Simulated scan of single mutants.
Amino acid sequence: MTELCLMFSAAFIAATLLPGGSEVLLVALLNNDTSNWLALVILASVGNTLGSITSYYLGTLGRFARSPQEMAKGKYKRSVGLIEKYGYWALLLAWMPVIGDLLCLLAGWMKLPLLKSTLIILVGKSVRYLLVAGLTLHWL
């Protein structure tokens, strides 16, 4: 039970703007005990998705701080362009380091639909954790 809580917490924290390596923890926990692999993947996916939704909500607050013209310039230009081009589908990349956090922030800032955004984020993150778990179990 402690391992499951640890996995959820680490995945949540890793998805916010704080650095973290939840994949490393997943591999370590699977090396210790493979019987909980599905529960670990589910909790990592849900925790990481909820962390991204936290970033989404922070983005909704940021809407008051900057104008659309400011956000479309400079260091945010590429990420804004991804979301403008692909909409909530760009959130399939929410699992990626650095850019994933920014995409989630911008999704909230650009007022993308919350339910669709959440589902797409969950799919992308679940696939990532399933791949990590699958490769780890294969090599054990």
Rank of each mutant, 00 (worst) to 15 (best):
T2Y: 10
T2K: 11
E3M: 12
F8D: 00
F8C: 00
S9F: 13
A10F: 00
I13V: 10
A15V: 07
A15I: 08
T16V: 08
L18R: 05
G20A: 01
E23M: 10
E23N: 10
V24W: 11
L25K: 13
L25H: 04
L26E: 04
V27I: 06
A28H: 11
A28W: 14
L30A: 06
L30V: 10
N31L: 12
N32L: 15
N32K: 15
D33S: 15
D33E: 06
D33F: 15
D33L: 15
T34I: 05
S35I: 10
S35K: 04
N36V: 12
W37R: 09
L38C: 07
L40D: 01
L40A: 04
S45F: 00
S45G: 07
V46Y: 01
N48G: 03
N48H: 01
N48F: 00
G51P: 05
G51Y: 03
S52V: 08
S52L: 12
S52R: 13
I53R: 07
I53P: 02
L58S: 09
T60L: 02
L61R: 10
R63H: 13
F64C: 12
F64E: 12
A65L: 14
A65W: 14
R66S: 13
S67M: 06
S67H: 15
P68Y: 04
P68A: 02
Q69T: 04
Q69F: 05
Q69M: 04
E70M: 05
E70C: 05
E70N: 05
M71T: 06
A72L: 07
G74P: 06
G74H: 01
K77C: 11
R78Y: 03
S79L: 07
L82G: 00
E84A: 04
E84G: 02
Y86W: 10
Y88F: 14
L91M: 06
L92M: 06
A94M: 09
A94P: 06
W95G: 00
M96I: 06
M96V: 07
P97G: 02
V98G: 01
V98A: 01
G100M: 02
G100A: 02
G100V: 00
G100W: 11
G100I: 03
D101T: 01
L102F: 08
L102C: 03
L102W: 09
L103P: 03
C104K: 04
L105K: 01
L106S: 08
L106Q: 11
L106I: 03
A107R: 05
A107H: 06
W109H: 07
W109S: 03
W109T: 00
W109M: 08
K111Y: 12
K111H: 13
P113D: 08
L114D: 05
L115I: 11
S117R: 04
T118Q: 06
T118A: 07
T118K: 10
T118G: 09
L119S: 11
I121F: 03
V123C: 05
V123E: 02
G124V: 08
G124M: 11
K125H: 00
K125Q: 05
S126A: 15
R128A: 01
R128W: 10
Y129V: 01
L130Q: 14
L130F: 04
L130A: 03
L131W: 07
V132N: 12
V132R: 11
A133G: 03
G134K: 06
G134C: 05
L135P: 09
L135K: 15
L135W: 09
T136A: 14
T136P: 14
L137E: 04
L137Y: 14
H138K: 13
L140Q: 10
